[in-house]
Design a binder for these strands. Structure first.
Length: 235
DNA sequence: AATACTCCCAACCGCCAGTAC
DNA sequence: GGTACTGGCGGTTGGGAGTAT
């Protein structure tokens, strides 16, 4: 199929938005809304911009509920945890951070979080979520070794490999061996999880996933942090 | 002070899925 | 069912700001 451009790219303005353009966009939306069609929006609003560019500018910068202040530690933890489970599903991660956009979260991850030591070691900060999943093994049926039905069948199929690996991983004898084993295990788990998530995102509407589960993970992490006055003692 | 380098963020690009016709 | 169109998303880039030399 021939790709149709959303606008005449040779005639529209590109690059940084001027304060005048911002004001025009903001005023128009506040008075008339978007009209439900971003492609025709620039013409109606009197902007010489591509509709997609207008949409992006509004959603990522001009929307009144955008949070401009620095990310908090709690937000860091949410990003680490959800990234460990979902991978680079920035829009879903951002939906759990009021006032943050997917672009914000993506930029923040790429420029800050992934460079932090623990993230550099493990690729992300899965120790908390995996640890908590391990802690939830008391939810496993002792006879069938299956999860109690707080998870859907599909979610169980994603989580079970992690449980199996993290609870049966042998021989943490020395700290260096422990570090490399943990690192390797998380690398494997990450791949499995990403694979699972990939098939999940293709097969199941993401809306069907119970994000209350992540809330459980986060509250546990925060309560440990509050109790110990710092990062939870892992392993 | 001048230049080189790095970092960060806003914006763009291209692809894909959903929907209307 | 096929095509055209649109919105949404993730990856990538450009360039300004800050820092190091």
């Amino acid at each position: 199929m021939v790709k149709t451009p959303c606008c005449n790219k040779t005639k529209v303005r590109k690059g940084l938005w001027s304060p005048e353009e911002d004001a025009t966009l903001k005023n128009y939306i506040q008075n008339y809304g978007t009209g439900g069609n971003w492609i025709t929006f620039p013409h109606k609003a009197g902007l010489n911009r591509c509709g997609k560019s207008c949409r992006l500018r509004w959603l990522n910068y001009l929307r009144p509920d955008i949070k401009r202040e620095a990310f908090t530690l709690e937000e860091d933890n949410i990003i680490y945890t959800l990234y460990g489970v979902l991978g680079s599903k920035w829009s879903i991660i951002a939906s759990h951070l009021p006032g943050r956009t997917d672009n914000d979260v993506k930029n923040y991850w790429n420029s800050k979080l992934k460079k932090k030591p623990i993230a550099a070691t493990y690729g992300y900060k899965p120790t908390n979520s995996i640890d908590t999943i391990t802690a939830k093994t008391d939810l496993l049926s002792s006879t069938t070794n299956t999860l109690v039905p707080t998870f859907s069948a599909q979610e169980t199929s994603l989580i079970t490999p992690c449980l199996t690996e993290s609870t049966k991983n042998p021989s943490f004898s020395s700290s260096s061996q422990q570090d490399s084993t943990i690192s390797e295990t998380f690398s494997q788990l990450g791949e499995k999880y990403m694979f699972g998530n990939s098939s999940c995102s293709k097969g199941i509407p993401m809306d069907n996933i119970d994000y209350g589960y992540f809330d459980e993970i986060l509250s546990e992490i925060w309560s440990q942090e509050a109790a110990t006055g710092g990062v939870p003692n892992l392993y």
